[in-house]
Nucleic acid binder design. Structure first.
Lengths: 112, 112
DNA sequence: AGAGAATATACCCGCAAAGGAATTTTCGAA
DNA sequence: TTCGAAAATTCCTTTGCGGGTATATTCTCT
């Protein structure tokens, strides 16, 4: 998992942009207006999202239309999926950890 | 979606901690050692992960055992799931956006 | 009670990242 | 080719965050 994607999503305004784009592609101006951002900040955030591969741009005349990139979310999803194993196989059992600890220490622990 | 969870995961060391804990619960010392972190940094990162609800602690004698929290990942998963609709319903079509634009402008655009 | 572990906190420093304002670039239309 | 929109980039300032080191806290065992 790349932390760039997560970093990009971890900023409130950027997360809002992503949520907004769920409804479909939008231009920079529309995004800025709907979120109460100033145009430069909107552009900057979009740049970061773009660099992280979360969104992609299409130039249409004067406008730049931004939309979500499927693959970014697929990757996130794949990563999350790899955690299901943890719960399914109960890899997070505290008791197991303690037993493991026991066997490691063995007799040791009270200086021989 | 809360940005606190994402922020917590967006830092390389913390993400590594999470990856590490996939294998099961670990104490602070073990985490620090395996990742080449100094104990205070490990503790700080764990604090942040804990505050974000990504991990949980259990005190065992002198040690603090950290493990992943199922629900944090469930929430992430649920949020991601809400994006599937975007692709399934092709809400990201650029053409649709342009048509929408057309109808909005209608006749207007070249000052009447 | 005292010593020594494992861990958490506090304090300081440097830097990266976010906001604001101004400026530049790009494109379409007249 | 000039004008005016839409958007990107630049520069500046501030602040939050991560690393480093030292110190406090907590627990165990003797």
């Amino acid at each position: 998992m790349k932390t760039t994607t997560l970093r990009a999503l971890a900023e409130p305004n950027r997360l809002q942009i992503v949520e907004l784009l769920r409804g479909g592609p939008l231009s920079v101006g529309e995004i800025a207006e709907r979120l109460g951002l100033r145009q430069p900040q909107a552009s900057k955030h979009l740049r970061i999202l773009s660099d992280a591969g979360v969104v992609e741009v299409h130039a249409v005349a004067n406008r730049r239309i931004y939309k979500l990139r499927h693959s970014a979310f697929q990757e996130l999803d794949a990563w999350l999926a790899s955690f299901r194993r943890v719960w399914e196989e109960k890899l997070d059992s505290l008791d197991d950890y303690l037993e493991e600890l026991q066997s490691k220490n063995g007799n040791r622990e009270g200086k021989p």
